[in-house]
Amino acid sequence: MSKIETDLSPEIQLEMLKTMLKIRYFEMTAGSLYKRGLLKGGVHACIGQEAIPVGISAHLRTDDYITSTHRGHGHHIAKGADVKRLMAELMGKETGYCKGRGGSMHVAAFEVGSLGAFPIVAAGVPCAVGAAFSMMHQGKDQVAVAYFGDGALGQGTIYEAFNLASVLKLPVVFVCENNCFAVSTRTEATVALKDIPSFAASFGFTGVRENGQDVLNVYKTARAAITRARENQGPTLLYFDTYRFEGHYFGEPEIYRTREEVQKSRDELDPIDIFSAYLLDAGMMNKQSRDEIEISARAEIEEAIEFAKQSPDPNPEEFAKYVYA
């Protein structure tokens, strides 16, 4: 249960819970559609990690930018993406955000500031740096958030991005979601970086390492970072510890961890349980209103599936449309 004090109104907090539930149901639904063969390709769920994008997005405006990853549905939903168009994209439909040309791993939602999911590990980070540069150049106050996993810390590009953002003092927030694994490999096995504050300080900016399971803690941690960016005080690295409850992708065999380990994490680290317990305890909702929120989140996802199923496939004659602008 969260012990964080917050300035957020009860309405906003309940809305945040609903967004977390929407992400959860979106992912669970994607999983079952995948198992039934209705979704193709690789689908990477962020179940267990919902608190991070929801806590971050609570500070963001629609016109702020994000870049996302292969595990990006949560980033998009938290940023305000329409779950109908997102689901339609996963099903490869013309009504999807990318008209079925992108799919789960290459989705983008420009109407809410998503510059796209970049499934090449770390590849979205320079793009967020570029968006931040562009805002600085144009004298605008939008900020950019780059989401990436712990695995991205093995890529040289990301250190180029840290350096570049720092020397140019760009309005960008780097958000690392350490979910303990990169596919089958535990973070400690491949990532030497541990001391985030001193690492970031050596690059000339601020870095913090925090618990990513408590959405209010994420929200609180992100405030200073986003304010700094908004006020052109340069980048920040936010490193959140979290845990991936599902396999790397749906259907992945998970031979690198025990069922017990996963169950223990589900019991102790579920960000939705943690936030719900807090909201119940604080009297902001009761069991009945909690159920209502859950029902309405589920209903939105059901509606999204219906929408996607009813939507047309892209016209095969248009396979070459959009190669050039």
Partner: peptide
């Protein structure tokens, strides 16, 4: 403002140019 020395970071620079291009600049 319009002519900018950068670090020696080719991949990141190309990505930065992309982010800037998608948000209103013509790098």
């Amino acid at each position: 403002a319009q002519v900018r020395n950068t670090p020696i970071s080719e991949n990141c620079l190309a990505g930065m140019a992309l982010g800037a291009a998608m948000t209103g600049c013509r790098p």
